[in-house]
Design a protein around this nucleic acid. Structure first.
Lengths: 92, 92
DNA sequence: CATACCCGTGATACTAATACCGGTATAAGA
DNA sequence: TCTTATACCGGTATTAGTATCACGGGTATG
């Protein structure tokens, strides 16, 4: 095993990141936000649904910019998920 | 071509990101910072030298935390590289 | 000289991100 | 009903990140 597979906790953290991004997107369409961020709508959908739990730094940066979200805020809240290590709620 | 290869500009941006991280590391050793961030020293080396130009979001988040750097600052300065699109200096 | 770090590079292994395609489902509107 | 728009899902293709191993150079210390 050379590259460690993502742990369930990392996947949970990715789902939570996607949830935050989706909430920030609000009423705007995926295609719109993806176009502004310069990524494909498919990729945005995968990130929002947590199927791409560890997206690239600049991908998140572009999304955060398009959504008006501070990245440190995102990272902090996702880190909280990792610390609590609940696994089910991922909310609050 | 399904996944777009990294453009020279994206690689340049990655080199600049690595430069910023290296500057922030200062006198500390790679092994120390990598251990604190929870990644391997080899990976940190690749990121700092720009051989991994688009690291994962949480990887950068862990490094930023270990180095006391704000991620928004990092993203902003790297975005400036992309905008100016110089390609050689990558400094200042 | 030997030992031990620290950094750099290359090769290798394996997983994951990104993108495109087709299909499906749902809701709104003519 | 038919069309359109949006989003979800599966598969597929390709590139890239992450980790380990091995080797080399540099520096410092015994």
């Amino acid at each position: 095993m050379v590259r460690t597979p993502l742990t369930p906790l990392e996947r949970e953290r990715g789902r939570y990141l996607g949830l935050l991004l989706r909430q920030a997107r609000g009423e705007r369409s995926m295609a719109d936000v993806a176009a502004v961020a310069g990524i494909s709508a498919e990729t945005l959908r995968k990130i929002e649904t947590g199927r791409a739990p560890t997206p690239a730094f600049f991908t998140v940066a572009a999304l955060a910019g398009a959504l008006g979200l501070p990245m440190d805020e995102l990272a902090r809240r996702c880190a909280a998920v990792t610390l609590t290590s609940e696994g089910e709620g991922a909310a609050a």
